[in-house]
C-alpha cells in the first residue's frame, strides 16, 4: 500500500470510526420487512403521493361513472355560483386528464447542495401510454420512464453507461412525475384523488383569480407516498394552479416540505419546489416498448 492509500484510508477511518454506536431498530425492521413481503405478493400499488394526484390524477376520482358523466362535471365547474373552488379545481383537473397532453416538470431542491432538474414528458390516459425523460446535470446521465398500454418500463444512463431497461409487473395507469410526489398521471380509480385528499386531509382551496387557485394540504399516512416505516414527521404541500382558456390545467406550482424524524427528534425541513406546465392537449402520444427489457420480479 502506498503512502497515498494509507493517508486516505486513515482519513476515512478518522471520519467515521469515532461515531457512536446506535441501537439497531430491529422492531421496525421486522415490521417493514413483513410489510414488504406482503406487498410483494400483492398487486403493484401506485404509492403515489396525493399531491401529484392533486395536480394531475386526483380529480379523476371525482369522475366515478362512465365518460358521459364528465361533461356534467365540467358543466358544473362553469357555474361559479354553484361550484366551490374545490369542485371547480377538481373539474378543471378532470378536464385536463381526459385527454393527452405534454408536460414539463421542473424540480428545485432548497437544501445544500442545491440542485434542479427538468423532466419532459407526455401522457395519454386513454391508452395508458406516455413517457418522461429527465436529463441530469452531468450531461451524460438521464432517466427515462415509459408506459406502453399500462406496462411500465424504466431505463436511462448513468454517466456514459446505458442502464438496461426494466419492465415492471402488472399494469398501471400512471407515470411517476417526481420522486417527491411518488407521482401519477392519468385517470385511475385506484389513485388517491384530489377530491379524496381534500376531504381526508382537510386541505383548503381558495380561488385567487379568474382561472387561478391556491391550495394547501398536509397529507398523512399512505397519502404521503411513504410507507409506515419511513421516518416522516410531516409533509406539507402549498401551491397554485393556473388554468388555460379551456379551463384545463396550464400550470401547477407547489412547494413540498418534508420534516423527518429520528429517535423522537425532528430534523431540519427539506423543501422541493416543483413547477409543472401542461400543454398540447389532445395531440397524439406515441410510445414504443423498449427492447430488450429485463422483467422485475
Amino acid at each position: 500500500m502506498t503512502n497515498i492509500d494509507e493517508r486516505l484510508a486513515s482519513q476515512l477511518h478518522a471520519l467515521v470510526d469515532g461515531e457512536p454506536d446506535s441501537a439497531a431498530p430491529t422492531g421496525m425492521l421486522l415490521e417493514r420487512g413483513r410489510q414488504a413481503r406482503r406487498r410483494r405478493t400483492g398487486s403493484l400499488v401506485s404509492g403515489s403521493l396525493a399531491v401529484l394526484a392533486l395536480g394531475a390524477v386526483g380529480a379523476a376520482t371525482l369522475v366515478h361513472g362512465p365518460a358521459s358523466d364528465r361533461p356534467a362535471v365540467v358543466a358544473e365547474a362553469s357555474s361559479p355560483a354553484v361550484a366551490s373552488p374545490q369542485m371547480e379545481l377538481a373539474a378543471a383537473v378532470a378536464a385536463s386528464e381526459n385527454t393527452s397532453y405534454r408536460v414539463t416538470v421542473r424540480r428545485t431542491a432548497r437544501v445544500d447542495p442545491k440542485w434542479s432538474e427538468t423532466t419532459l414528458g407526455a401522457f395519454d390516459p386513454a391508452t395508458a401510454s406516455g413517457y418522461l425523460r429527465t436529463p441530469f446535470p452531468d450531461g451524460l446521465s438521464f432517466q427515462e420512464d415509459r408506459l406502453v398500454d399500462g406496462v411500465y418500463y424504466l431505463g436511462g444512463a448513468d454517466g456514459g453507461r446505458k442502464m438496461p431497461w426494466k419492465r415492471y409487473p402488472g399494469k398501471r395507469n400512471f407515470l411517476p412525475f417526481d420522486a417527491a410526489m411518488g407521482g401519477a398521471l392519468g385517470a385511475s380509480s385506484d389513485q388517491e384523488g384530489l377530491f379524496q385528499v381534500l376531504k381526508k386531509t382537510g386541505a383548503t382551496v381558495t380561488k385567487t383569480g379568474e382561472r387561478a387557485y391556491h391550495f394547501s394540504v398536509e397529507p398523512t399516512g399512505k397519502a404521503t407516498g411513504f410507507d409506515a416505516g419511513a421516518p416522516l414527521a410531516s409533509e406539507k404541500v402549498v401551491g397554485d394552479v393556473t388554468l388555460d382558456a379551456d379551463n384545463r390545467v396550464a400550470k401547477l406550482d407547489y412547494e413540498v416540505t418534508y420534516v423527518w424524524k429520528k429517535d423522537g427528534k425532528v430534523g431540519p425541513p427539506t423543501t422541493v419546489q416543483v413547477t409543472m406546465a401542461f400543454s398540447d392537449y389532445g395531440l397524439p402520444v406515441k410510445v414504443e416498448p423498449p427492447a430488450p427489457a429485463e422483467v422485475v420480479r
Binding site: 476515512l12 471520519l15 467515521v16 461515531e19 446506535s22 431498530p25 421496525m28 425492521l29 421486522l30 417493514r32 420487512g33 413483513r34 414488504a36 413481503r37 410483494r40 416505516g229 421516518p231 423527518w260 429520528k262 430534523g267
Partner: peptide
Amino acid sequence: MLLAGDRWRAEELLQDSLVRMYE
C-alpha cells in the same frame, strides 16, 4: 455513513438494505 454521506442517510440506507434481506 461513508457511502451515504451522513448518518441520517446511512441509517436509511442500512435499514433499506436490511429490509430487503428480510424479504
